[in-house]
């Protein structure tokens, strides 16, 4: 068996999702190569060559591939697919965009968003927004898989000794023109990998009120999330959305403020280690999944939480 992992990166750094995907791959077999397609991405390859388990880093470094256009990357992957039994990528919007094309070109099924590996051909994946878990066995000779990053810890970024191999491929470039990307910049940890997440819902009432959460997030070094209702109401941008159609998060501590707990939202956070819910409606379904519930007016509770945190001698960051 031999596995190819598709690296997600921004030409500067490897994304955390890639290290989780490498861990998932290592549970199938530890004969792992990684493919990097990008432009001016020396730092990406050096990070990966130090990473645990990596044998080879296949590199295509060209300004043509500065942006991850699915048509181009899927062709690159399929042209080097032959020697691999498994091809894995993170189930991020990067991987979801590319991997079904790879599977279709290879005429195999894709196994989406796996959360557990039961064997070289058997995997567990959530269906119905995580309300059921399906165990599936692949009958295809090649397995094309996307991995839910939050279900696998990152591998060690040290101690590896991967060899970099430049690929020389002649790929027809797609006629997709990349116009631009609006990334939401933040000094806070990334929502998908933060140790603590504080999320707000419609209960916050306005974008201005939503910023009340910033002070708590600063103190806990938390990422800020939101329910779909809060995003739709325009309190915060959509990349903060936690839920079935947003991000799935599994932090050590998840604090839900003014969130009622729609099935949609629960699908994105109910695997968190500790869940705190603050809501004034004692019937809110969020309390059914909370380890600690506080039935209170959030506009009183949030300032109190801030001052209680100030009283602590130390806070884990």
């Amino acid at each position: 068996m031999k596995i190819l992992v598709i690296a997600e990166h921004n030409n500067e750094n490897v994304k955390a999702s890639t290290f989780s995907t490498i861990n998932a791959a290592s549970q199938i077999d530890q004969n792992i190569d990684v493919l990097v397609v990008g432009s001016d991405c020396n730092n990406v390859t050096s990070e990966l060559s130090n990473t645990q388990y990596i044998k080879k880093i296949l590199l295509i470094d060209d300004t043509k591939f500065q942006n991850p256009i699915a048509e181009n990357i899927s062709k690159i992957i399929t042209s080097c697919a032959e020697e691999y039994t498994h091809i894995l990528a993170p189930a991020s919007t990067f991987g979801k965009n590319i991997m079904p094309r790879v599977a279709a070109i290879l005429d195999v099924a894709q196994i989406s968003d796996i959360i557990k590996i039961e064997g070289k051909d058997t995997f567990v994946r959530p269906i119905y927004a995580g309300n059921a878990l399906a165990t599936v066995q692949s009958q295809d000779s090649k397995k094309v898989i996307t991995v839910r990053p939050t279900s696998f810890d990152a591998v060690s970024k040290e101690g590896g000794n991967g060899e970099i191999q430049k690929l020389d491929l002649d790929i027809d470039i797609s006629n997709v023109e990349f116009m631009g990307r609006e990334e939401t910049k933040s000094d806070r940890p990334e929502l998908g990998s933060a140790r603590v997440v504080i999320s707000g819902g419609r209960g916050l009432g306005s974008a201005e009120n939503f910023s009340l959460l910033n002070k708590i997030a600063d103190k806990l070094n938390a990422a800020i999330g939101a329910s779909r209702a809060a995003v739709d109401a325009g309190y915060i941008s959509n990349d903060s959305q936690v839920g079935q159609t947003g991000k799935v998060v599994v932090p050590d501590l998840y604090i839900a403020v003014g969130i009622s707990g729609a099935i949609q939202h629960l699908a994105g956070m109910k695997e968190s280690k500790i869940i705190v819910a603050i809501n004034k409606d004692e019937e809110a379904p969020i309390f059914n999944v909370a380890d600690y519930g506080l039935c209170a007016d959030l506009f009183e509770a949030i300032p109190q939480l801030s001052s209680e945190l100030d009283k602590l001698n130390t806070i884990q960051k």
């Binding site: 165990t135 692949s138 059914n288 209680e308």
Partner: peptide, 25 residues
């Protein structure tokens, strides 16, 4: 191409406790 071996419910999360105030939380 995939054989579905089984479909199960995810492990249920047990309901926690209600705290009286922020200090207790």
């Amino acid at each position: 191409r995939l054989k579905q071996l089984k479909v199960i419910e995810p492990p249920k999360r047990s309901k926690g406790i209600m705290v009286a105030d922020v200090a207790e939380l």
